[in-house]
Every structure is written in structure tokens, then in C-alpha cells.
Design a protein around this nucleic acid. Structure first.
Lengths: 145, 145
DNA sequence: GTATACCCCGGTTCTCCACTGGGGTTTGCA
DNA sequence: TGCAAACCCCAGTGGAGAACCGGGGTATAC
């Protein structure tokens, strides 16, 4: 289960949006990028992808930015990675066919493994991420004292 | 859960060895490559990796070849992919560290997902692969009639 | 009307995967 | 004893994709 840089950036950005969800005001690319240490021009592309698949919505012009289009507890991590990873891998989808019986058997098992991993990603939402973050932060403070 | 070409080749080769395990005679790279449509010079490297980690043993010289070093039902698919994928990713292991709390949280979830996938790969052995193959072959014949 | 933001499209660099090639060394067999 | 069949080791190459950068647009608050 590889976590690509791309997916991690997207998750960090959405987490940032989730944290400020209750504010109701849009967050700008610059702010998100600065807060999470993401190259801003790259993040722009990722947010565009997320917008096209409806996970976030944008407000153009001065004082613009990005907002989650749903509540943080209604967005699963699986949705996010599917959106990001599956974005360009469209159209062709010629990701290797198995011609032999042996190849088919192997692929079936790999699909089962993939589904098991997806099940984990599906049970966590952006809200869970935010909560876990808060818990970890409190722990860090306690250790410091 | 990505199935790399490399891992699939290795599994196909080991499956071929598993099928002929009871023969007791070594199989040659050429034969395996021809049977499973694998570039032979490439397969050579993979078998070398598998040998170094003790999954197969080799016999040099004329009439030589490769043999499984354990019974097919004692080799799990997880072992195989760990051996193949983890072979070169040694030494450095600088596979991105998470400096932020947010990054750590995300990685923990990804690890959980990876473990779920690994659990699936661990419950299947080369023997299971061979059995599934036989079942599928019988089905193919019945459909044909 | 102007500064601030998003929007779109393309290029660049770098790494890694799949694969190839050129030499060895070991061993069975005539 | 020779020789061919097989494994062994190491190095290089070509293409694809990931991560990133840049230039020029367009919408909108003030």
C-alpha cells in the first residue's frame, strides 16, 4: 500500500480545510501550502482535481479560496485517494490484462488484498483525521511537561 | 495494492516450480520463461533474488536449474512479494519521514491498510495458487463442451 | 479599475521499472 | 579432457510517470 506524495498532499490540504470547516470562510492555496509545507503551484493542480470531482468547491477572485463541499465526517479517505490517483488513469485503463489462467488467479487474490486495504481507508473520514491529530497534539504537550 | 510486473513474474515462476515440485528435478530458466511468457534474462535476476533469500535453490552446470527449497504449501505469497519488492529497497530505507503530526496520523492509517492487505497475501500459499489454477482449468474445459 | 485570487496548459527534471548485454564460472556427459 | 549447457554477476538503456515550475488568462471584492 503505497502512499504517494500526491495523495498525502491532498489529504493534508483537505485536513486543513476540515479543521477550518466551521469558519465558513474559504482558505487560500497559499495558506494551506504554507501551513502544510506543500509546493503551492503543485497544490493548485491537486485542488483543481478535487474540485472537478466535487470534493471541494472554489470561490474565485479576491478573498477567494477553497471550501469542503461536504461535512468532514462525510468524506472518507478512500474517496480522496480514488479521486487523486484515479484522475489521470482514465480513458485507457489498459493496466495490463491477464491472458493466462495463472495470471487471472493471481490478480483475483490481489484484488481481494486491495479491497481489504480499501475497507480500512473507507472507515476513516477527514473528521477522524482531525480528531486523531488533536489527540496526538495533546500527548505531545503532556510529554513536554 | 499495486501488483508490479516484477512480483507477478516471480509468482508465476514459483507457481511453475510448485506445479513440478513432485518431480524432484530442477526446472531451467528457459523452460519457465517459455511456459509463462517471461523475458528470460529478466527472470534470471528475479530467481537470483529469490535464491539469495532462500526461497529457491539452484543447481549449476549442465542439466541444472531451480527448485523450491520448501514445500509449496509452506511458501506464502506475502513472503514472495516481500522478498522481491524489499530486495533493493534496503540500506537507505529513507522512504520519506513524516515530520508533522498530520503526516504521522496519515501514515499510521496507511500502515493499517497495508497490514490488512498483507494479511490476505499471507493466507495464500503457492499450493493454493496451483489448486485455484486447476479448478479454473477444469471450468474452462466444461464451458468449452 | 486594480489587486487578488483561482484557472488552464504546457514543459522539465529526475527517478525507477522493465529489459538487454557482455562477460564469467560451474558441471554433466561424450 | 573438452565442450556445451546452464547458472552467475554487473552494468547500461529506454520509456514512463511523478513532482514540480512557469506563463499567461479570467473572475471578483473593494
Amino acid at each position: 500500500m503505497e502512499l504517494s506524495c500526491k495523495s498525502e498532499y491532498a489529504l493534508l490540504a483537505l485536513l486543513e480545510l476540515a479543521i477550518h470547516y466551521s469558519d465558513g470562510e474559504p482558505l487560500q492555496i497559499r495558506q494551506i501550502a504554507a501551513e502544510q509545507n506543500i509546493p503551492d503551484r503543485y497544490l493548485e493542480q491537486l485542488l483543481a482535481t478535487l474540485r472537478r470531482s466535487g470534493l471541494v468547491r472554489s470561490q474565485r477572485g479576491a478573498k477567494g479560496g477553497y471550501l469542503l463541499s461536504r461535512e468532514p465526517w462525510k468524506i472518507t479517505l478512500l474517496e480522496v485517494v480514488n479521486c487523486i490517483e484515479g484522475a489521470d488513469a482514465k480513458s485507457s485503463e489498459t493496466g495490463r490484462e491477464a491472458k493466462s489462467v495463472e495470471g487471472t488467479v493471481i490478480r483475483e487474490i490481489w484484488q481481494e488484498a486491495g479491497e481489504a486495504a480499501d475497507a480500512i481507508l473507507q472507515k476513516y473520514t477527514l473528521q477522524d483525521l482531525a480528531d486523531k491529530r488533536d489527540v496526538k497534539r495533546q500527548l505531545d504537550i503532556m510529554y513536554y511537561i
